[in-house]
Design a protein around this nucleic acid. Sequence first.
DNA 1: GTGGGCGGTGCAATCGATTGCAGATTTTTC
DNA 2: GAAAAATCTGCAATCGATTGCACCGCCCAC
Lengths: 361, 361
Amino acid sequence: MQPPAPSPAPARATPTRATIADVAREAGVHASTVSRALNPATRGMVTAAVAQRVTEVADRLGWRPSAVAAGLRTRKSRTIGILVPDLINPIFPPILHAVETVLAAQGYVTLVANTDNDAARESLLIERMATHLVDGLILASAAAGTDALSLCARFGIPAVLINRRMPEGAGCAAVSAVTNDDTHGIGLAVDHLVALGHRRIAHLAGPQGVSTARDRRAGFLERMRHHGLAPVAVVDAAAYTRDAGRVAMTALLEGLVPTGPACTAVAVANDMLCLGVYDAMEAAGRRVADDISVTGFNDMPFVDRIHPALTTIRIQHDAMGRQAACILLAEMAEPGLARQSIRLVPELVIRASTAPPAKGP
Amino acid sequence: MQPPAPSPAPARATPTRATIADVAREAGVHASTVSRALNPATRGMVTAAVAQRVTEVADRLGWRPSAVAAGLRTRKSRTIGILVPDLINPIFPPILHAVETVLAAQGYVTLVANTDNDAARESLLIERMATHLVDGLILASAAAGTDALSLCARFGIPAVLINRRMPEGAGCAAVSAVTNDDTHGIGLAVDHLVALGHRRIAHLAGPQGVSTARDRRAGFLERMRHHGLAPVAVVDAAAYTRDAGRVAMTALLEGLVPTGPACTAVAVANDMLCLGVYDAMEAAGRRVADDISVTGFNDMPFVDRIHPALTTIRIQHDAMGRQAACILLAEMAEPGLARQSIRLVPELVIRASTAPPAKGP
DNA sequence: GTGGGCGGTGCAATCGATTGCAGATTTTTC
DNA sequence: GAAAAATCTGCAATCGATTGCACCGCCCAC
């Protein structure tokens, strides 16, 4: 553009972006001065007039900073990685949205990836993100038997867990976490069922590799004991998926798992599983609420519209995302900061999937 | 680790990653040789023995390439940006998942961001991604009156549209797109309703700024004409949200929009709107299917479990994501490639929200 | 036996921005 | 009015990997 060279079409072939050197030349100052003038943090180091002129030239030339070049020098990419076990599960998008909103406001960009609940894939993704020099990592995919945390430590990447904690043993104090009070939450479901008059209650648990499943299972048993009740049965689903829920519930209905007398209610570990529970009950000709009451967990979007509308435990998606993002920002700014573990309190949402037990035949 | 220096804790303070220079020194070769040995594409340029030795040393030192440094030199970040209007809408996660799977297999990492249907935010995000030197962009957020495409052109970033096209005028030929055949799809819904015996059919359209809404609206009108029917009413929702659907349907039910005789069926532009339609009908004491049949669009997850189960148009989430990713990869590799526009064909899924019209009173 | 060819390596420049240091200028202070 | 301090700006090194070019041997051929 500036040298009207005889070369045919540099304009089209290479829309070469202006660099800081171009701006410097045009503004008649040194590149370092341009850098200082354009960086809000260092603007104060140059004369107002110079800053003004440089800014104008930069605008005119359409200069955009290269995060890559800056990142190489500063070892900061202004990029945060987020690992999610399964984006298809509707509880994650709202959490992600909150995280992204907080981070975007601070000028960060987010690298989102699905682990598909696969530890190997998770490791690969963390390595790749390390390669891209992410400044921090938000892990919603924590599970037992995973290298995630040790990889982060090895690469020196600050991390915050969200929704799921690490298993107790695995140096859980080493990393901050924002989770729900799952124990308390499932207790609310038990209380509600008991209050309705249920005594024969089963638990459909999640995959025991993740903390939400373990905590809810333990919380269920504890709260049942508190009420002086013995659980009719506890079945573990293989994954937090609709199909795993269907399979587990089918097993429960067909007596394929050791159970006491037939249950009148089942507290399910998660809403996604509940969809499968509904499927299984429909297939078996049993009616939700009328025959067996069902409670979920998460209050994920749209479960108020399924039939019958699901009684569930509402978690604080938004607060969870926000808090995690804030903690991560704080720990990135000051790595020595004490780790914190925030437990958000969930609430019971009563809808139509729970009802008093049918009077005995 | 290797030099047991007296300095207190370099291990903790700076887990300095090994660089290519460290590997070179340790292996007794020049850095450029290391680079060639470690890059699969250039491995052939060095002796097998050297390659072997370098690889071993790199492993031993735990060397990881710096995508940032490489990116600065090569002007390729191996990063792809994806812009989504609203991640909360469950049709996007499956699409994203498909895109991510294809790209991850090629070693790319994805930068996902929500535009929240806000043009300014979209521009900001594109600029930020340009700053991070994304190699390509997948835009699911295309809407009229947006700078997205011109920004991409300015920054020289290849882009592929997905789900939504650009408005006809705006140089639509300049960019590839993978979309649904929305016109055909909504026609299937009309055909189905007509076959059930409906004659008084309304259309609840989406926000007319986006192509899916425009095409479905046009397709609806066209197909009605084909059947020799005049639409009872056409209402535009303000956005593709549950609440906008409720508002629009309420207006329709209360006769706030010019309508002919009361409708017996409404073809809705999208499943998310349908949730609001159900809300509005419930509030007005009208029964879905029994009083008014409802069809959706997208077959988003879980609409088979709402009550009554939604009759809708199924789109090919997975194929859409895959194709878009493949096209983008191809265009990145060969920028001169002719643009292509792929139109996927949707299918009708009949469930319980549609029924023959009630016999007149 | 000498020249050409070629495969393998090293050298050094490069990508674009940042930053410690030093020099130049101005301002403040006694 | 001179010395000291404060303020600006330029210089050059740096971050880590890539790559065009040159060079060095070695092999083969004539």
